[in-house]
Protein backbone atom coordinates (compact mmCIF):
# COMPACT_ATOMS: atom_id res chain seq x y z
CA UNK A 1 0.00 0.00 0.00
CA UNK A 2 2.70 2.47 1.01
CA UNK A 3 4.88 1.58 -1.98
CA UNK A 4 1.98 2.05 -4.29
CA UNK A 5 1.35 5.46 -2.84
CA UNK A 6 4.95 6.55 -3.39
CA UNK A 7 4.84 5.63 -7.03
CA UNK A 8 6.90 7.92 -9.26
CA UNK A 9 5.78 8.64 -12.82
CA UNK A 10 9.04 8.71 -14.75
CA UNK A 11 8.53 7.29 -18.21
CA UNK A 12 9.49 9.54 -21.08
CA UNK A 13 7.18 7.90 -23.62
CA UNK A 14 4.19 7.97 -21.26
CA UNK A 15 4.78 11.69 -20.82
CA UNK A 16 5.16 12.19 -24.54
CA UNK A 17 1.90 10.35 -25.25
CA UNK A 18 0.02 12.38 -22.67
CA UNK A 19 1.34 15.54 -24.31
CA UNK A 20 -0.02 14.75 -27.77
CA UNK A 21 -3.68 15.74 -27.18
CA UNK A 22 -2.45 18.94 -25.52
CA UNK A 23 -0.26 19.71 -28.53
CA UNK A 24 -3.19 19.12 -30.89
CA UNK A 25 -5.42 21.37 -28.83
CA UNK A 26 -2.72 24.05 -28.86
CA UNK A 27 -2.52 23.96 -32.65
CA UNK A 28 -5.89 25.63 -33.14
CA UNK A 29 -5.46 28.22 -30.38
CA UNK A 30 -1.95 29.25 -31.43
CA UNK A 31 -3.09 29.26 -35.05
CA UNK A 32 -5.47 32.05 -34.10
CA UNK A 33 -2.66 33.85 -32.29
CA UNK A 34 -0.38 33.72 -35.36
CA UNK A 35 -3.20 34.99 -37.54
CA UNK A 36 -4.05 37.87 -35.21
CA UNK A 37 -0.43 38.93 -34.78
CA UNK A 38 0.10 39.20 -38.53
CA UNK A 39 -3.21 41.02 -39.01
CA UNK A 40 -2.03 43.55 -36.38
CA UNK A 41 0.94 44.24 -38.64
CA UNK A 42 3.59 42.24 -36.80
CA UNK A 43 6.15 40.21 -38.74
CA UNK A 44 5.60 36.43 -38.70
CA UNK A 45 8.95 35.73 -36.99
CA UNK A 46 7.97 37.84 -33.98
CA UNK A 47 4.70 35.95 -33.49
CA UNK A 48 6.58 32.64 -33.65
CA UNK A 49 9.25 33.91 -31.24
CA UNK A 50 6.57 35.08 -28.78
CA UNK A 51 4.86 31.67 -28.83
CA UNK A 52 8.12 29.78 -28.43
CA UNK A 53 9.31 31.89 -25.49
CA UNK A 54 5.99 32.48 -23.69
CA UNK A 55 3.94 29.32 -24.14
CA UNK A 56 0.76 30.84 -22.77
CA UNK A 57 -2.49 31.95 -24.40
CA UNK A 58 -4.20 34.72 -22.43
CA UNK A 59 -0.91 36.52 -21.73
CA UNK A 60 0.15 36.45 -25.37
CA UNK A 61 -3.17 37.75 -26.68
CA UNK A 62 -3.09 40.59 -24.14
CA UNK A 63 0.56 41.28 -25.04
CA UNK A 64 -0.42 41.57 -28.68
CA UNK A 65 -2.79 44.43 -27.88
CA UNK A 66 -0.08 46.27 -25.95
CA UNK A 67 2.46 45.88 -28.74
CA UNK A 68 -0.08 47.03 -31.33
CA UNK A 69 -0.87 50.10 -29.19
CA UNK A 70 2.89 50.62 -28.53
CA UNK A 71 2.14 50.71 -24.80
CA UNK A 72 4.83 51.19 -22.15
CA UNK A 73 7.01 48.20 -21.16
CA UNK A 74 5.89 48.56 -17.55
CA UNK A 75 2.30 48.02 -18.59
CA UNK A 76 3.40 44.93 -20.50
CA UNK A 77 5.14 43.59 -17.39
CA UNK A 78 2.14 44.33 -15.11
CA UNK A 79 -0.37 42.75 -17.47
CA UNK A 80 1.74 39.60 -17.85
CA UNK A 81 2.15 39.43 -14.08
CA UNK A 82 -1.57 39.62 -13.36
CA UNK A 83 -2.73 37.34 -16.17
CA UNK A 84 -0.06 34.72 -15.51
CA UNK A 85 0.00 34.85 -11.73
CA UNK A 86 -2.03 31.66 -11.66
CA UNK A 87 1.11 29.85 -12.86
CA UNK A 88 2.74 30.68 -9.53
CA UNK A 89 -0.03 28.73 -7.79
CA UNK A 90 0.45 25.84 -10.18
CA UNK A 91 4.24 25.86 -9.76
CA UNK A 92 3.73 25.80 -6.02
CA UNK A 93 1.42 22.83 -6.44
CA UNK A 94 4.03 21.19 -8.69
CA UNK A 95 6.74 21.78 -6.11
CA UNK A 96 4.82 19.36 -3.89
CA UNK A 97 4.20 16.87 -6.66
CA UNK A 98 7.63 16.62 -8.31
CA UNK A 99 9.74 13.68 -7.23
CA UNK A 100 12.66 14.40 -4.88
CA UNK A 101 14.99 13.08 -7.61
CA UNK A 102 14.25 16.05 -9.88
CA UNK A 103 17.36 18.28 -9.92
CA UNK A 104 17.56 22.08 -9.98
CA UNK A 105 18.46 22.36 -13.71
CA UNK A 106 15.55 20.04 -14.48
CA UNK A 107 13.24 22.21 -12.38
CA UNK A 108 14.43 25.27 -14.32
CA UNK A 109 13.46 23.52 -17.55
CA UNK A 110 10.16 22.06 -16.31
CA UNK A 111 9.04 25.46 -14.97
CA UNK A 112 9.05 26.80 -18.52
CA UNK A 113 6.24 24.42 -19.48
CA UNK A 114 3.92 25.30 -16.61
CA UNK A 115 0.73 25.82 -18.60
CA UNK A 116 -2.83 25.13 -17.47
CA UNK A 117 -3.09 22.00 -19.59
CA UNK A 118 0.34 20.49 -18.87
CA UNK A 119 -0.20 21.22 -15.19
CA UNK A 120 -3.64 19.64 -15.25
CA UNK A 121 -2.57 16.46 -17.02
CA UNK A 122 0.47 15.98 -14.79
CA UNK A 123 -1.57 16.67 -11.66
CA UNK A 124 -3.98 13.98 -12.75
CA UNK A 125 -1.31 11.29 -12.34
CA UNK A 126 -1.08 9.39 -9.09
CA UNK A 127 2.13 9.54 -7.09
CA UNK A 128 5.07 11.84 -7.76
CA UNK A 129 6.33 13.15 -11.09
CA UNK A 130 9.83 12.35 -12.39
CA UNK A 131 11.91 14.46 -14.77
CA UNK A 132 11.65 12.04 -17.71
CA UNK A 133 7.86 12.02 -17.59
CA UNK A 134 7.78 15.80 -17.33
CA UNK A 135 10.24 16.40 -20.17
CA UNK A 136 8.32 13.95 -22.38
CA UNK A 137 5.07 15.73 -21.53
CA UNK A 138 6.49 19.15 -22.54
CA UNK A 139 7.54 18.25 -26.09
CA UNK A 140 4.29 17.92 -28.06
CA UNK A 141 2.66 21.02 -26.49
CA UNK A 142 5.73 23.19 -27.24
CA UNK A 143 5.85 21.90 -30.82
CA UNK A 144 2.07 22.28 -31.24
CA UNK A 145 2.03 25.81 -29.85
CA UNK A 146 4.95 27.00 -31.98
CA UNK A 147 3.87 25.15 -35.13
CA UNK A 148 0.28 26.40 -34.85
CA UNK A 149 1.52 29.99 -34.55
CA UNK A 150 3.79 29.50 -37.55
CA UNK A 151 0.98 28.11 -39.69
CA UNK A 152 -1.42 30.83 -38.55
CA UNK A 153 1.11 33.58 -39.22
CA UNK A 154 2.15 32.29 -42.64
CA UNK A 155 -1.06 30.88 -44.07
CA UNK A 156 -4.07 32.06 -42.13
CA UNK A 157 -6.55 30.84 -44.70
CA UNK A 158 -5.30 27.25 -44.56
CA UNK A 159 -8.00 25.72 -42.34
CA UNK A 160 -11.67 26.16 -43.30
CA UNK A 161 -13.81 27.94 -40.70
CA UNK A 162 -15.89 24.91 -39.72
CA UNK A 163 -12.76 22.89 -38.89
CA UNK A 164 -11.37 25.72 -36.76
CA UNK A 165 -14.70 26.06 -34.99
CA UNK A 166 -14.73 22.34 -34.13
CA UNK A 167 -11.09 22.35 -32.99
CA UNK A 168 -11.83 25.26 -30.70
CA UNK A 169 -13.65 22.96 -28.28
CA UNK A 170 -10.92 20.29 -28.13
CA UNK A 171 -9.06 21.85 -25.24
CA UNK A 172 -12.25 22.16 -23.16
CA UNK A 173 -13.10 18.54 -23.86
CA UNK A 174 -9.77 17.66 -22.27
CA UNK A 175 -10.41 19.86 -19.26
CA UNK A 176 -13.76 18.16 -18.72
CA UNK A 177 -12.17 14.72 -19.04
CA UNK A 178 -9.86 15.72 -16.19
CA UNK A 179 -12.39 17.26 -13.80
CA UNK A 180 -15.55 15.23 -14.38
CA UNK A 181 -14.45 11.76 -13.14
CA UNK A 182 -13.08 12.97 -9.76
CA UNK A 183 -16.11 15.27 -9.40
CA UNK A 184 -18.29 12.22 -9.89
CA UNK A 185 -16.43 10.25 -7.20
CA UNK A 186 -15.63 12.90 -4.60
CA UNK A 187 -18.17 15.32 -3.24
CA UNK A 188 -15.55 17.87 -2.04
CA UNK A 189 -14.01 18.04 -5.52
CA UNK A 190 -17.48 18.41 -7.03
CA UNK A 191 -18.26 21.29 -4.68
CA UNK A 192 -14.94 23.04 -5.40
CA UNK A 193 -15.56 22.76 -9.16
CA UNK A 194 -19.13 24.07 -8.83
CA UNK A 195 -18.02 27.00 -6.69
CA UNK A 196 -15.26 27.86 -9.20
CA UNK A 197 -17.70 27.65 -12.12
CA UNK A 198 -20.28 29.81 -10.32
CA UNK A 199 -17.74 32.53 -9.52
CA UNK A 200 -16.37 32.31 -13.04
CA UNK A 201 -19.82 32.94 -14.53
CA UNK A 202 -20.40 35.77 -12.09
CA UNK A 203 -17.12 37.45 -13.06
CA UNK A 204 -17.92 36.98 -16.72
CA UNK A 205 -21.48 38.24 -16.82
CA UNK A 206 -21.99 40.60 -13.87
CA UNK A 207 -21.70 44.32 -14.66
CA UNK A 208 -18.42 45.99 -13.54
CA UNK A 209 -16.92 42.60 -12.61
CA UNK A 210 -16.78 41.60 -16.27
CA UNK A 211 -14.12 44.25 -16.83
CA UNK A 212 -11.59 42.11 -14.95
CA UNK A 213 -8.92 40.54 -17.13
CA UNK A 214 -9.44 36.83 -17.74
CA UNK A 215 -6.21 35.92 -15.96
CA UNK A 216 -7.20 37.84 -12.85
CA UNK A 217 -10.68 36.28 -12.94
CA UNK A 218 -9.14 32.79 -12.94
CA UNK A 219 -6.96 33.67 -9.95
CA UNK A 220 -10.01 34.84 -7.97
CA UNK A 221 -12.00 31.71 -8.87
CA UNK A 222 -9.13 29.36 -8.08
CA UNK A 223 -8.19 30.97 -4.76
CA UNK A 224 -11.79 31.32 -3.51
CA UNK A 225 -12.97 27.85 -4.51
CA UNK A 226 -9.81 26.08 -3.28
CA UNK A 227 -9.84 27.98 0.00
CA UNK A 228 -13.46 26.94 0.59
CA UNK A 229 -12.50 23.35 -0.24
CA UNK A 230 -9.47 23.41 2.08
CA UNK A 231 -11.51 24.94 4.88
CA UNK A 232 -14.54 22.64 4.65
CA UNK A 233 -12.84 19.48 3.38
CA UNK A 234 -9.19 19.27 4.46
CA UNK A 235 -7.16 16.59 2.68
CA UNK A 236 -5.24 14.12 4.81
CA UNK A 237 -2.41 11.73 3.99
CA UNK A 238 1.18 12.05 2.77
CA UNK A 239 0.47 11.60 -0.89
CA UNK A 240 0.12 14.76 -2.87
CA UNK A 241 -1.83 13.64 -5.87
CA UNK A 242 -4.21 16.24 -7.18
CA UNK A 243 -6.59 13.62 -8.51
CA UNK A 244 -6.93 9.93 -9.16
CA UNK A 245 -7.65 7.49 -6.42
CA UNK A 246 -4.97 8.33 -3.91
CA UNK A 247 -5.57 11.75 -2.35
CA UNK A 248 -7.84 10.99 0.55
CA UNK A 249 -10.39 13.59 1.31
CA UNK A 250 -11.86 13.96 4.77
CA UNK A 251 -15.51 14.73 4.68
Amino acid sequence: MEEEKNLCHNQFDAGFRHGIPIGLGYLSVSFTFGMMAVSEGMPAWSAILISFTNLTSAGQFAGLDIIAAQGPLLEMAMVQLVINLRYALMSLSWSQKLDASVTLPQRLLIAFADTDEIFAVSSGQDGTLGSKYMLGLMIAPIIGWTAGTTIGAIASSLLPDFIRSALGIAIYGMFLAIIVPPSRDKRPVRIVVLVAVTISCLLHYAPVLQNLSSGFAIIICAVAASAIGAWRYPVKGDNFAASGESGEVLS
Binding site: Y172, P188, F240
Partner: peptide
Protein backbone atom coordinates in the same frame (compact mmCIF):
# COMPACT_ATOMS: atom_id res chain seq x y z
CA UNK B 1 -2.99 20.80 6.17
CA UNK B 2 -4.84 23.89 4.98
CA UNK B 3 -2.13 24.82 2.47
CA UNK B 4 -1.83 21.23 1.25
CA UNK B 5 -5.58 20.93 0.80
CA UNK B 6 -5.68 24.31 -0.91
CA UNK B 7 -3.05 23.21 -3.42
CA UNK B 8 -4.86 19.90 -3.90
CA UNK B 9 -8.02 21.69 -5.03
CA UNK B 10 -6.28 24.29 -7.23
CA UNK B 11 -6.22 22.29 -10.50
CA UNK B 12 -9.94 21.46 -10.31
CA UNK B 13 -10.87 25.04 -9.52
CA UNK B 14 -8.64 26.43 -12.29
CA UNK B 15 -9.97 24.05 -14.91
CA UNK B 16 -13.60 24.52 -13.87
CA UNK B 17 -13.24 28.29 -14.05
CA UNK B 18 -11.40 28.14 -17.38
CA UNK B 19 -13.98 25.85 -18.96
CA UNK B 20 -17.20 27.62 -18.00
CA UNK B 21 -18.35 29.95 -19.43
CA UNK B 22 -15.44 30.08 -21.96
Amino acid sequence: VFVRSFLYYIPYAVLGAMTIPA
